[in-house]
Design a protein around this nucleic acid. Structure first.
Lengths: 173, 173
DNA sequence: CGAAATGTGCTGCTTTACAGATCATATGTC
DNA sequence: GACATATGATCTGTAAAGCAGCACATTTCG
């Protein structure tokens, strides 16, 4: 009862509706923004994950993005065919395949990241700029907490602890 | 370039990842919370929409919840069979079917709303309480703006303007 | 060396969403 | 009033996506 006051005047279920509405609008715009990539939005997500988080295996990618292993297989097939990434046998564990971005994959990602950033800014432009920043920051913290409580997302916990400031610096040319 | 500063230190695509992560954790918990309803989460959403927003037709429900007309048909079939709602020919336009909740449907919704509210509070408990409230409020405003910019969601614009304070009052017993 | 465990790829099944046609009703025009 | 067109709902068939299960290669443990 005491925690009721933290919620504004909404109906139970509005949180999910709001999340779904924002995510749907975001993903629809993103679909046009990543037009040309084999596999659509997921291709961008995989490429971004590979470059920015350097996951050790396909399983780590799938766990991070909630993509089924079997789906990831043919998704990566298309990306390999397009020359964006390559499968390299992990020298330390030859069962696993290390997914590494090619030079073209890196340049393609840089190009598309500008579009994606524009889409995100466009979505957030619906509310005042400082509120947009606050929302993005709060959402990031909430996602981290949800992610931590999620039992299925254990493999990328190690990746989570990797530094991110250097990664961000690298994308600003 | 000037709008870059409104974004915190994130990679382009993180907004979508954060949204998807939170929504996925939310919906997973919700699935267990609405266990017993015919149609799962969507049944709850439809029931909540019918009672709280009083949509004039099935089309309005589908547009509001982004449910395809054909899917909504058999989803409502299950709800009618369960005695939660009933299809009433609209006297003003007999092509349309007015979906009205039965007395049992209303009581069922009230019961399940407590569970859903608990899930939402649990999700938001991952961050400080006042931040959770701020996030929910900001997300609501952002969802409204996205919704307004969404051309496919026009039919429920009229419903949007309906009062909500009375609805909230009624759900507190 | 043998046995269990793990990563990956392949196959088939189930569920789900979407497009098209159909029927009933409403609206506009003559 | 008669007709053509538009809209809401339902039904049918098709396409896509996810998931469980099996198979193969490789690692790790006993």
């Amino acid at each position: 009862m005491t925690s009721e006051s933290i919620l504004p005047a909404t109906v139970p279920g509005d949180l999910g509706w709001n999340l779904a509405m924002v995510l749907r609008g975001y993903q629809r715009q993103l679909e046009t923004a990543v037009d040309g990539l084999p596999g659509g939005v997921r291709c961008y997500q995989v490429l971004s994950t590979v470059i920015h988080r350097d996951p050790p295996s396909q399983q780590a990618i799938g766990a991070h993005l909630a993509i089924d292993r079997t789906v990831l297989t043919y998704l990566l097939d298309g990306m390999v065919d397009a020359g964006l990434v390559e499968r390299i046998p992990d020298p330390t564990d030859r069962r696993a395949r290390k997914i590494r971005a090619t030079a073209e994959g890196a340049s393609v990602l840089t190009r598309y990241e500008a579009r994606v950033a524009a889409v995100e800014a466009g979505i957030l432009s619906g509310i005042p700029a400082d509120d947009g920043g606050r929302l993005a920051a709060l959402l990031g913290r909430l996602a981290t907490s949800v992610h931590r409580a999620d039992p299925t997302a254990s493999p990328c916990e190690a990746v989570e602890s990797l530094g991110r400031a250097d990664v961000i610096a690298s994308r600003h040319q």
